[in-house]
């Protein structure tokens, strides 16, 4: 399953960044066709020379920071549909930057586990970033000339620097001449993110990513959900030890942090974990306080 997931992640990354002409020095710089009307479901900078679709977080800010101050209903609705169907499954299976972080984590070095308290506190950072840098500042801030800014993309996003900035600067000598403090700042953030990914599993996804934060809000209502068969579960804790996102599937099978990679399902020796549609009849009955046997009969 881990190999299949890597193949899907890589295949999706190649498919959505397949505009070869963008990588030819002196050729058309980025794709400008109609596919860019559509957002990809994961983080993927639309200024990547190969990008065939738009970045949902960048698009959201582009509508918020426009002169007409749009409400980004198109992108929010689109992301909500995805979230309602699969939750953070996208993070685990269809995000190129997630794959890059996972590959960096494979570099054989001692690994770091962030202690529980700071880890828990830092997890809220991505919600703050979503609210302030993606929603509020692009919507309300206007310069003296009336222009808004995509705050997250401009000041934080290492995905744009890696997928857009670095290749464009390497391919285009004019752009190299325009490098200033902003590029240096964003490059520093990228280096920190890449460096942290070698020692910590997916640090950007855990602490920074506003898209993961958005999808995470749908984990407990999404159509596809994790289920624990409490009759099979022996509380051995193997699933919690396996989870690199530090989720305990026995306690919170549909935690906002779960990227639905299915590693825990594979690791469970009792086959007590599964991914199914809805919360499951037994779970609904348990929540309603009804004894299971009574209604099963």
């Amino acid at each position: 399953m881990a190999k299949l997931r890597k193949l899907v992640q890589a295949g999706w990354g190649i498919l959505t960044n397949a505009y070869i002409n963008g990588f030819i020095p002196g050729g058309p710089v980025i794709y400008q066709g109609p596919l860019k009307q559509l957002c990809v479901p994961g983080m993927n900078c639309y200024s990547c020379p190969g990008a065939l679709g738009s970045c949902p977080i960048g698009s959201m800010q582009a509508i918020f920071d426009s002169r007409s101050r749009g409400i980004a209903a198109y992108v929010i609705g689109y992301l909500a549909i995805i979230g309602l169907f699969v939750g953070r499954f996208i993070c685990g299976w269809l995000c190129l930057f997630g794959l890059i972080q996972e590959l960096l984590y494979k570099i054989p070095t001692p690994k770091l586990t962030v202690p529980e308290k700071p880890d828990k506190a830092l997890r809220y950072l991505k919600y703050l970033i979503l609210f302030v840098m993606v929603f509020m500042l692009p919507f309300f801030y206007r310069s003296e000339y009336g222009a808004g800014e995509p705050f997250f993309c401009k000041y934080i996003c290492p995905v744009g620097t890696l997928e857009g900035g670095v290749p464009l600067v390497l391919l285009n000598s004019m752009m190299r001449g325009a490098l200033g403090w902003l590029f240096r700042w964003k490059f520093l953030l990228l280096v920190l993110c890449v460096g942290a990914s070698i020692f910590i599993y997916r640090p950007f996804c855990k602490y920074i990513c506003p898209l993961g934060a958005f999808y995470g809000l749908f984990q407990k209502v999404s159509l596809i959900r994790m289920r624990v068969d409490e009759e099979k579960c022996v509380d051995c804790g193997i699933c919690a030890k396996t989870c690199k996102m530090n989720v305990d599937p026995r306690r919170t099978p549909n935690s906002n942090e779960c990227i639905r990679c299915r590693d825990c399902i594979k690791a469970c020796p009792m086959h007590a974990l599964s991914m199914k549609i809805g919360p499951g009849r037994d779970q609904e009955q348990r929540q309603a306080g009804q004894p299971l046997e009574e209604t099963k009969a």
Partner: peptide, 28 residues
């Protein structure tokens, strides 16, 4: 919600942003 955004012309706004290099996104 998605359909309302399409009706308001937000798809064109996304396209016009995405077909030009986003200088802020790449750090320039």
């Amino acid at each position: 919600l998605c359909a309302f955004g399409i009706y308001r012309g937000e798809v064109a706004m996304v396209l016009s942003k995405a077909i030009n290099i986003c200088m802020e996104c790449i750090g320039l």
